[in-house]
Structures are given as structure tokens and as C-alpha cells.
Design a protein around this nucleic acid. Structure first.
Lengths: 146, 146
DNA sequence: CGCACTATCTTGACTTTGTCCAGATAGTGC
DNA sequence: GCACTATCTGGACAAAGTCAAGATAGTGCG
């Protein structure tokens, strides 16, 4: 089965490079993350991908999400106290802005663009490879609701 | 019972202001977070506080940690994929640097010092109150172990 | 095309981290 | 010393995700 009409050649290439096979569950998960709106959690992805396929195990969803994060095809963000979210925009090291109330999540462009975009004054002799930034606040809708 | 010899008057004042009573479990939890080393998780705090008191329920630990975080006496950080950590240094909006391998966590002074220390180019009309930064890397020990 | 190799999927139990609930206990202000 | 209610206890429960073992199915190669 190759319903890869919705998956770019670039991504197919990435999958191949990581020895990741083109399975129906994998492509379904990928399409959900790419097209069903950004920053979805595993629960949503599971439901949507299962609907596409008819049936799909939870484990296949987690396996695929983990495999594709490891391969650099997806990016995972883990906001404090919330389930992990997945997105396809990788490689530009952008950041995230999350509403404290409704948890709406939007991308924030990173001025530097490359990791680590920030350098601490004192690195404690660590080798730092990433500066992860989460902005917290209230979205326009939640501001007026108070 | 008032074994508050190890708790500063300043903290006692903060507790009082938040209607937080001076209970043995509360003081034990506070002392652990203040003195047993920074950036400990709930599990460690529970063990250490229970040892101080003889017995202590898990729920009391979580209740106290949550209450004191809400009161601004403790700060909670939640590194991706890890249990929450607690620390007493509040009010200076410092950041954290975490080893990807052993999870050693150290404070990173924030240049600005006040929240939000970073402002995105485009705030999407959110009201942003905090920029949370986590630096990820390898600590000196874990660099050499490879 | 057909085979073998092994990545992936399925099912279902399990783990970790933490919350909810109800009743008993104990600080605190007056 | 009392009342008021914050807090503690014990135990069930919940969310998010992992582990394990066997069945299934992509893929490269001949």
C-alpha cells in the first residue's frame, strides 16, 4: 500500500535514509501531523490516524512518533504538565508560545534559527546543543474571557 | 511542633501570608528542598521528608509542594520527559541547564532577571508573562564517558 | 517474481507520576 | 479553650506512555 500522495518526496527520502519502511500506519500518522493542524498530541493523532485506516493500535502510533522524532522527521515538544505535542516543522529551531488557559500553541520564530540559539554566561563546562524556549501567556480569546 | 530552626523568618512570613499553616510535614518538605540539594524530584523529597518525620503520606508531599509552588515559596521545573523538580530560589527568573544523559541540573543566571526575560518578535496578541528556557547538553562527566 | 530478513504491528499487561476523595487530625485566631 | 478549616492519611484512580512476545508485512536481492 502506497497512499503516499500526501507525503513529499523529501520526507520519503528521509524515511528511507533512516531505514524506516513505508507502512500504512506510518504514513497515516505522518499525514495527520502534517495536515490536521499543528501541535497535536498523541491521543489526537491516534484517533485521526485510526479513522483513516479503520484500525490502528496505540503502540503503533507511539512507535511511529518516536521513530520519526528520532529520525528528525518530526519534532516533539513537551510543555510542562501537558502531554507531548508533535509537529513537522523541523530544522529551524523555532520556539513555542502556549496559552496558560486553553493551551493554544503557536510557533515563534527564533532570531538565530540555529541551535543553540542562546548561550548562557556560564556553561558550567557542559557542551550545550540546544536552548529550548517556551513562552507562556494568555491568548487573545482567553484574555477577554476573564 | 515548631522545628522551624532551619526555616528562615522570611519563609515563615510567606507561609503565613498565604494562609499556609506550620505543620510538621510542610516544614520537613521545605527543609528537604532547601538543604538536601537543589533540583530534587517529588520521589526524593518524599523519601527524605518521611525519614525526618518517621512517617508521611505521599499525598501530603504533593499537597505541600503544590501549595508552596502556588504561594511562590517554591519553584517547579518540568524538564521534557522527566519528573518535576523543585527548588527554593524564586523571584530571579533564572534558567536551567540539564545533562541529556545523567540529568544533572544546574542554574543558569538570566541576564534580564525579570520575567519575561525574552520577547518574541511576534507575540500573536498573547499577553506573555514568562519565557522559560532550558539548555540541554552534556555535563563534564558524561562528555568523557563516551 | 519470490524469498529471506527484519522492521513494524497487535494485544495486553505494566510503569511512572501524579490527582481525587472522604473522613480523621491538628494549627490558629479569638 | 474552642471553633474553624487547613491539612493529613489511606486508598482508589487517571493520564501518558513503555515493555514484551508473537504475528505480519515492507524491502533488497537474486
Amino acid at each position: 500500500m502506497r497512499q503516499n500522495r500526501d507525503v513529499t518526496d523529501e520526507v520519503l527520502e528521509l524515511l528511507k535514509q533512516s531505514n524506516l519502511r513505508l507502512t500504512a500506519p506510518r504514513l497515516a500518522v505522518l499525514e495527520v501531523v502534517e495536515h490536521e493542524g499543528k501541535h497535536q498530541d498523541a491521543e489526537f493523532i491516534e484517533q485521526a490516524a485510526r479513522q483513516k485506516l479503520g484500525s490502528l493500535s496505540r503502540q503503533a502510533v507511539y512507535d511511529n512518533l518516536n521513530a520519526m522524532v528520532a529520525a528528525g522527521i518530526l519534532r516533539r515538544i513537551e510543555p510542562a504538565g501537558r502531554p507531548a505535542l508533535y509537529e513537522t516543522r523541523v530544522g529551524d529551531n523555532h520556539h513555542h508560545l502556549i496559552c496558560r488557559q486553553c493551551h493554544k500553541t503557536v510557533d515563534i520564530n527564533c532570531a538565530a534559527g540555529v541551535k543553540p540559539c542562546l548561550q548562557p554566561n556560564d556553561d558550567h563546562d557542559f557542551v550545550i546543543d540546544e536552548a529550548e524556549v517556551v513562552y507562556w501567556g494568555l491568548c487573545p480569546d482567553c484574555q477577554t474571557e476573564n
